[in-house]
Design a protein around this nucleic acid. Structure first.
Lengths: 176, 176
DNA sequence: AGAATGGGACAGCCATGTTGACATATCTGC
DNA sequence: GCAGATATGTCAACATGGCTGTCCCATTCT
């Protein structure tokens, strides 16, 4: 995947973003609220980038989430995807029906367990997911680059801390 | 506001969370995807905590967001809230009508400009917002505590980097 | 006075979440 | 091999919370 900086920003020094560092009393209400707000605005800013592409395809964010995870773990089962998204069978069913009807997602019968339907992207689906990913990547790479390598580690650590401990293994597994 | 740790965790050492640090090639696709996924799971984990309280009140997440920002900036105008939420007048109108009808939000005529409606929470509204905030705080404080002070600074820096530069001033202003 | 602005309200549409019930195919344990 | 559990799909119905378009009123600005 293309690295959208050439040359790479020097890895350890924050570039454009200056944030006031967390104080030693970083559990005060103000600093908690700062985190809540930045998480809200940062999250919405990141996903908003893909909306134009989705709209032009007549798809929504729910379709994007499904495409994303199928791209990330090709061959995952419907049940696994359900677990990742945390929605109901019906909600996901509509989305998968749409994506199959448009020829973006394929289903294969499970090898070990023939009840399972293993999901993967068709070439068209993969192409669309790549376009969508490029949008997310643009935001995220800029933020990483501006903040610096060390900040990225902290970013990951706090976010992983937000995930309930029971659910962390699943997130890690996705990234193995 | 109660700090839910006593004593405070030592401020500089990550406690419970171990994340593999970002590599010097931290703009590779894998590390971008890791950020996207952690942002998604972290964000949803944080807000999910308040859902039970909202449901028991017959309110939704849209109501929560409005309550949150009115609590954060009492006396803000409808237009300012509209700008923060990034939704349309109609969508916000429904929410504000609900909240006013339940006696959670009050509107006062603007002092400088009498066309404006300045929003604030009633005592009941403030009490509900405090309960909701406590839920978010619980997640966030745990994550901060596990990750450590330095990680929190990095967390902020990356998130601020995700916000488009034109919008950063508004986020900062909220937190001034 | 006339235009622009802040806010409210109508009707209606769409995406995406929910519950509950039920059907089918397949697997697992006894 | 049969009984029960599991994976998936599907139907109907409903709620939330976005959206558009239009119109209106009060107020402010020029």
């Amino acid at each position: 995947m293309a690295v959208p900086f050439s040359p790479l920003p020097s890895a350890n020094k924050p570039q454009g973003v200056r944030v006031t560092p967390a104080s030693p009393l970083f559990l005060r209400e103000d600093e908690i609220r700062r985190g809540i707000e930045l998480l809200y605005f940062g999250y919405t800013a990141m996903i908003r980038g893909a909306d134009a592409i989705l709209e032009q395809q007549g798809l929504g964010r729910a379709h994007h989430r499904a495409l994303y995870f199928i791209a990330r773990r090709p061959g995952l089962s419907v049940g696994q995807l359900l677990g990742l998204l945390g929605i109901t069978k019906q909600s996901l069913g509509r989305v998968l029906t749409d994506l199959s009807a448009r020829g973006l997602v394929e289903q294969a019968v499970g090898h070990a367990d023939r009840r399972q339907r293993l999901l993967s992207l068709t070439p068209d689906g993969a192409a669309l997911e790549a376009r969508l990913f490029t949008e997310l990547e643009r935001s995220m790479a800029r933020a990483y680059g501006e903040a610096g390598q060390q900040a990225v580690t902290g970013f990951w650590a706090v976010l992983m801390g937000l995930v309930p401990p029971e659910a962390r293994a699943e997130v890690e597994a996705l990234q193995g």
